[in-house]
């Protein structure tokens, strides 16, 4: 799941000069880490909804925690998928 997410980040956010290995699962995605911004968060949210049918709700979910790293995103998506099955 983590590698799949890294690939999704690269392709949906036009980061083609990066490889999956360049992204650390624990590293911060926003600001000082990978350096993504708020538009990237919206874009990534859309890509996750399309690929995994998992909706991240800014009203309900702790968006800062979910988007903290690849690892935290993967945990959230897997738990949402488990709820559905």
């Amino acid at each position: 799941m983590e590698n799949e997410l890294k690939q999704l980040i690269i392709s949906s956010l036009d980061l083609e000069d990066l490889n999956v290995e360049d992204i650390d699962s624990q590293e911060a995605l926003f600001n000082e880490g990978l350096g993504l911004d708020s538009i990237d968060a919206l874009e990534l949210g859309l890509a996750i909804r399309k690929k995994y049918d998992v909706r991240i709700d800014a009203e309900k979910d702790d968006v800062v925690k979910i988007f903290a790293s690849v690892s935290s995103l993967a945990v959230f998506i897997e738990s949402e998928q488990a709820k559905k099955s």
Partner: peptide, 9 residues
């Protein structure tokens, strides 16, 4: 289709 937030911005 849903539009890309980046493309919109």
């Amino acid at each position: 289709e849903e539009i890309s937030p980046t493309a919109f911005s």
